[in-house]
């Protein structure tokens, strides 16, 4: 068992945990975009808030900064969802009453601002050095590295299942039908007496809370977070996942996340193999440019997504 968990299998476990972390974020974005038509360009910001909130709440006391408060991990995760939801309210209340593009601009702004805060508010976030010693619960009890990673994979898989089933029930409920009505025809939804702004705000906040939870999942898996874990590229990756999976389909969102993450890590490995170290930063830029072009191509030729269809 122990040997098996080293080598390729250990890598597979690691890969899957990260892929499911992306799947959680994509599920959150799917509620916002796929079901409600809300264009969130600041996904990375909400994930960042979740990761940092949980880390601040659960890390042991650090004289170098405010906190940590050494609270249990489940409380940290709850705090992550709460604070991501609060930030969603902060942008949602001014922007969701207006045209679509305003939400795009404000979410873009909050992600930029939160990145700045994480980088510079050293007394709270540890600044560019990030936060270490984010607790990994039961690490030694579950056999350290290999065994614990596997256990964490099961935990994250259960979490994804829970969120997926929960969101599926919600979106199949009358509440979910109103969301789709708003997405398809806002004026008609308003005309039959639905409070469009409130439904949109609820979907937006709920989606952001799922993203915050994903951030906490990441923080407690790696045990260390830094501002560069939540750069705008994260937002793009998640958008690519949702579009590949087909917006408006929960299973598609999960499948898209795993597939795109596989392609992403695969192409990263190829770059590692064939590109000399000094050209690495530039080769990575080319990889990101590829995502941008792919996003445009999908929008042009397969607007309903690669795997599923919006519905």
């Amino acid at each position: 068992m122990v040997e098996l968990l080293a080598g390729p299998l250990a890598y597979l476990v690691f890969f899957l945990v990260i892929a499911l972390y992306y799947a959680l974020i994509t599920l959150g974005l799917n509620l916002q975009w796929g079901f409600t038509g809300l264009f969130n360009v600041g996904v990375a910001g909400f994930v960042l808030v979740g990761a940092y909130s949980s880390a601040i709440l659960t890390t042991p006391d650090d004289p170098g900064r405010i906190g940590g408060f050494g609270l249990p991990v489940p409380l940290g995760m709850a705090g992550a969802m709460l604070s991501a939801g609060l930030f969603a309210l902060l942008v949602g209340i001014p922007a969701l009453r207006l045209r679509h593009d305003y939400l795009a601009i404000t979410t873009f702004g909050i992600a930029v601002t939160l990145q700045l805060v994480a980088l510079n508010l050293q007394v709270l976030t540890g600044g560019p050095f990030g936060m270490n010693f984010v607790p990994r619960p039961l690490y030694d009890e579950l056999g350290g590295q290999g065994g614990w990673n596997l256990a964490y994979l099961l935990f994250v898989a259960a979490l994804v299942l829970l969120v997926w089933r929960g969101l599926a029930r919600l979106t199949a409920s009358p509440w979910g039908r109103v969301l789709r009505a708003i997405r398809e025809d806002e004026a008609a939804a308003a005309a039959i007496g639905k409070h469009v702004f409130r439904f949109r705000l609820e979907a937006f906040v709920l989606g952001a809370m799922v993203m915050g939870l994903a951030g906490a999942v990441y923080a407690h898996f790696i045990g260390f977070i830094a501002p560069e874990d939540f750069l705008p590229i994260l937002t793009f990756q998640v958008w690519a996942m949702l579009i590949v999976g087909g917006a408006g389909d929960h299973r598609g969102a999960i499948a898209g996340a795993v597939l795109v993450w596989a392609i992403w890590t695969g192409s990263g490995m190829l770059l590692d193999l064939f590109v000399p170290p000094e050209g690495k930063a530039q080769a990575a830029a080319l990889q990101v440019a590829g995502i941008g072009v792919a996003l445009c191509l999908v929008l042009l030729f397969r607007p309903t997504g690669l795997l599923g269809r919006r519905g």
Binding site: A285, V288, A289, I291, G292, V293, A294, C296
Partner: peptide
């Protein structure tokens, strides 16, 4: 808007 987002990413990189 999404297309402009993708184009920006490609151009910048």
């Amino acid at each position: 808007v999404m297309g402009s987002f993708g184009a920006a990413l490609a151009l910048r990189n």
